[in-house]
Nucleic acid binder design. Structure first.
Lengths: 199, 199
DNA sequence: GCTGTTTGCCTAATGGTGTTAGGCAGATGC
DNA sequence: GCATCTGCCTAACACCATTAGGCAAACAGC
């Protein structure tokens, strides 16, 4: 009959990512994807192992895109500049691509996670912190703090958590970045550490 | 045949919450719930409007439980004590009841959200901050910061984000609380505000 | 350009979940 | 003891995920 649609795993994953941005990642479905390519659902199984495989690949795509943006943001910047740019890249991506952002949180099995752009994102966070001259246990704590704050904020924001109350989310975001910058400069002593703070 | 199981919406919701803690909130299903009560799936529809209704009610239960725990934690405490206890209540709940915690993040329509324990949680956060004497735009920013950090951290932790790297999550948690306490004491000036910091 | 092989999309079938409509029997009220 | 009501059941339909096997388009070699 008609010419073959020419499906490939890559095209499917890209379309799946767009679909996620439109209908939320959790509503991405093999059937809907097939519908978009005007193809029967079963046909996708030549290119994808199953639904979980599709979601995993969308997650990998999102993680890579996020790392690309973050990498571009921090290039040539340091200290507060780098922090702000990194944070903006992160938040902008989540706002522009909520479905992909949700995908980036899809739980990956350890092997897949290790091969993903996840570690690259972690290294970028460390690079941002380099300018603050933290010593080792503290730097890891700070990496986790930044991850928590950014993810938490963006997650609450996209869930509409701030949309119906007084100061716009934007202002809080700036305030938080100020606060984090100040915090990182003051290099707090870890709790539960035996070293005396004021000998 | 046998005696009637005596289903009620409340029993179903409680069982649904337990189910969520076992199999993850997103895998809570009307069918599985029916199976647990040894009852046909269709029978649940006398007590629940639909699957979304079930999830909403589990979310409301979780929000209420969370507020109860938080409320107990902050009672009779102030300042750093209150902050630590509040944070611990939050994190403990998420670790002990991951499914319920995920449920508490289920998107509610505005009316339901307004009638939920969500606002009560927000008020409790404000109560914790009372001890730090923040002025108004800052207090709201701080409420959002705490929400972001706690949610972000717990969310990353339960996703296994910290489980395979060096310092235990516990230590980072304590470090973060130290940092937040210090931060709140230093009361940073909001960014983009026209008032001069040093006149 | 014909032929044989590969491969991509199809049909068909199965099982799971969500949901509605209507029936029958156990619990309840008098 | 009877009428009613309510709760759980059967039946049925739609949608999604997945597998098995078929057929024809694309392609390789001559």
């Amino acid at each position: 009959m008609a010419v073959r649609p020419g499906l490939t795993a890559e095209r499917l994953v890209r379309a799946g990512a767009e679909l996620a941005d439109e209908v939320r990642f959790e509503h991405v479905t093999v059937s809907e994807l097939a519908r978009r390519f005007d193809v029967k659902t079963a046909s996708l199984y030549s290119h994808l192992k199953n639904s979980h495989d599709l979601k995993t690949r969308i997650a990998l795509l999102a993680l890579a895109e996020l790392a690309d943006r973050a990498s571009e943001a921090v290039a040539g910047r340091a200290g507060r500049d780098a922090l702000t740019a990194f944070a903006a890249a992160y938040r902008t991506y989540a706002v522009e691509h909520p479905g992909r952002y949700a995908a980036a949180r899809f739980p990956l099995d350890p092997q897949t996670a290790a091969a993903s752009a996840g570690p690259r994102n972690a290294r970028l966070t460390r690079a941002v912190l380099r300018g603050y001259g933290l010593t080792e246990p503290a730097e890891t704590h700070a990496v986790r703090l930044l991850g928590s704050v950014f993810h938490g904020f963006v997650s609450l924001e996209t869930a509409g958590g701030f949309s119906h109350s007084a100061p716009p989310a934007e202002e809080t975001w700036d305030w938080i970045l100020d606060a984090l910058d100040a915090l990182l400069h003051s290099t707090p002593t870890p709790a539960g550490t035996t070293e005396a703070a004021t000998p």
